[in-house]
Amino acid sequence: MSKLTLKTEGNTHVVVTRRFAAPPEAVYRAHTDPKLIQKWLLGPEGWTMPVCISDARPGGKIRYEWTDGKGHGFHLTGEYLELEPYSRIVHVERMHLPDPTPDNHVETRFAADGTGTLMTMRMTLPDAQTRAAMLATGMEAGMEASYVRLEGMI
């Protein structure tokens, strides 16, 4: 049984849920403290995030830069809109590939679940085509990760 669910909802939403063994305060901090974000929000195997700006207050900037250490990289920028420690974050983000993708509006909720946390992340894209493109980009990243793992097994 997987702890992660990912579903499309309506025309423009993607909803991800995940349970964590830590309380909401810790999970919230891991989503807002740049030192912690850099440790886990990495995408494909082998990639790192040398630049992580996360100014967690309304209007505060977000900037994540990823690199594979071989000259390839991309970055994401965004802004925080609302923060309710330790239960809710609302922000917008866009990927630069290098042209910016349309804004992804993200509401992330952290609810106490026993001794742990249930996280619900609801993404809203401007239209169905953007959602399709975003999911398709995600697939490529996912496939790359699996290919790298496959290489490790051979």
Binding site: S2, L4, L6, V27, L135, M139, M143, A145, S146
Partner: peptide, 14 residues
């Protein structure tokens, strides 16, 4: 596949 990529990140977060 997309779930798998996300899963990797959240396993790290664990």
């Amino acid at each position: 596949m997309l779930r798998k990529a996300l899963k990797k990140n959240y396993d790290r977060l664990d």
